[in-house]
C-alpha cells in the first residue's frame, strides 16, 4: 500500500472528470458542496478527509512523481494511463474516512495516554511525563479513570485483553497489530517513531502511516458494532462523525418528515428551490432509508444507469441529453442512490 496507489485508485474512480485539485480537497476533507457531491458520485467516501494535514506541496510532489513515472497524465483533468491502471493493484483498502474525518487520531491519542498511564500505575510509578500533551486528551483520560471502579491493575489487564480481542477480531493484519502496538508507550518501554518502524519493517514511512490509519478505522468500525468491549468503546466516544447533514439540511429534513413537499419547504423557509433540492441530495447521500421512490421510479433509475454504463460517464449534461424527460434533480438523485441491486 502506498500513497501513490491510493491516489491512483481515486483518480480511476473519477475517470478523467475531475481536476487534481478536486482530489486534494477530497483527501483533506473540504466541506464544500462540490467536494461532498464528488465523493458521492464517484464512490470515494472512504477516502474523504483521509489526510486532513496533507500539504499542497506534498500532494504536488506526488503528482509530479506520478507524471514522471507515466502513471497519470494531466491536462486540466487527471487521467490514469494504461501503465497507471496496471500499477493500481487490486488491494482492497478498508479505510472509512467519511465516518472519522481525522477524529481517529483522537482515539489513538487517548489510547496512547491510557496505556501509558495504566502501564506506569500498575508498576507503581506515579510520576511520568505524559506522552500526550493535548489538554482535551488529558482531561478525557482523567475523567475516564475517575469513572472506573476496579483497581488500576485489573483495569490494565482488562484493557490488554480488550486490545488483544479487537486486534484479532477486526481482521487487522499481523503487520497492523505490530504497528499499532509498536506506537504505544508505557513503563520502561517506549513506542517507536515512524522512522524506526520503517527501518525495522523495511517499508517506507508513508506506507506504514497509511496501514496505521487503516487499522484505526478498522478498529473503530469494529467497536461501533461490538459494544462488548467497554473500555475501548468508551475511548471511541465522539471519534465518529455523528451528524452528516449540514444544519440547514437538517431543518429541511424535519419539515419533510412532517409531510411538506419540496416546493412547500422552499416557500416556508424562504429559500430557493435549488437550495432545498441540494438538501435532499445531501439527505439521500447520508440516510440509508431515504424515500427516493417519492421522486423517481425504479424504471427511471434503471434507464439512467444503463446510459451511465454505455457512455461511461456520470456527467449530468450528457445524461440529460439522453433522458430529457427527467429533471436535473432527479438525475442527481439517481446517481446518488446508485444502481439497483440485481
Amino acid at each position: 500500500m502506498s500513497f501513490d496507489s491510493i491516489l491512483l485508485t481515486i483518480f480511476q474512480r473519477l475517470h478523467g472528470e475531475r481536476s487534481a485539485q478536486g482530489v486534494y480537497h477530497i483527501l483533506r476533507g473540504k466541506k464544500s458542496g462540490q467536494t461532498l457531491q464528488d465523493v458521492e458520485y464517484y464512490q470515494v467516501k472512504s477516502y474523504y478527509a483521509l489526510l486532513p494535514h496533507l500539504t499542497a506541496s506534498e500532494f504536488q510532489q506526488a503528482l509530479e512523481r506520478m507524471q514522471a513515472d507515466d502513471l497519470i497524465y494531466i491536462n486540466e483533468l487527471v487521467y490514469v494511463t494504461a501503465k497507471g491502471q496496471m500499477a493500481t493493484g487490486s488491494e482492497m483498502w478498508r479505510f472509512n474516512g467519511w465516518n472519522y474525518r481525522g477524529l481517529e487520531r483522537e482515539f489513538a491519542r487517548r489510547l496512547a495516554l491510557l496505556v501509558q498511564t495504566l502501564s506506569n500505575l500498575r508498576s507503581g510509578e506515579t510520576m511520568f511525563m505524559p506522552i500526550q500533551k493535548e489538554l482535551p486528551t488529558q482531561q478525557f483520560i482523567k475523567g475516564f479513570l475517575r469513572n472506573q471502579s476496579s483497581s488500576m491493575i485489573s483495569l490494565s489487564t482488562s484493557l490488554r485483553k480488550e486490545l488483544e480481542y479487537v486486534f484479532t477480531h477486526s481482521s487487522l493484519s499481523d503487520l497492523q497489530c505490530t504497528i499499532v502496538s509498536g506506537r504505544l508507550t508505557g513503563y520502561k518501554l517506549t513506542g517507536s517513531t515512524w522512522e524506526q518502524m520503517a527501518d525495522r519493517l523495511n517499508m517506507s514511512v508513508k506506507t506504514i502511516q497509511l496501514y496505521y490509519l487503516e487499522a484505526l478505522h478498522m478498529l473503530l468500525d469494529y467497536l461501533q458494532h461490538h459494544p462488548n468491549l467497554p473500555l475501548l468503546s468508551e475511548l471511541a466516544i465522539g471519534c465518529r462523525v455523528d451528524t452528516y447533514l449540514t444544519q440547514s439540511a437538517e431543518r429541511t429534513q424535519k419539515l419533510f418528515e412532517r409531510g411538506y413537499s419540496v416546493e412547500q419547504i422552499a416557500s416556508l423557509r424562504n429559500l430557493k428551490l435549488s437550495t432545498i433540492e441540494d438538501h435532499f441530495i445531501e439527505m439521500a447521500a447520508n440516510m440509508e432509508s431515504f424515500p427516493y421512490k417519492e421522486f423517481i421510479t425504479e424504471e427511471q433509475r434503471d434507464t439512467v444507469w444503463r446510459h451511465v454504463e454505455q457512455l461511461q460517464t456520470k456527467r449530468l449534461r450528457l445524461l440529460k441529453q439522453q433522458c430529457p424527460e427527467l429533471s436535473y434533480f432527479q438525475l442527481r438523485l439517481i446517481i446518488i442512490i446508485g444502481r439497483r441491486e440485481s
Partner: peptide, 13 residues
C-alpha cells in the same frame, strides 16, 4: 522487536 502480543503483555500485564 517484541511480538505484538508480548508487547501488550509487557505494557499492561
Amino acid at each position: 522487536a517484541l511480538q505484538w502480543r508480548d508487547r501488550l503483555l509487557q505494557l499492561l500485564g
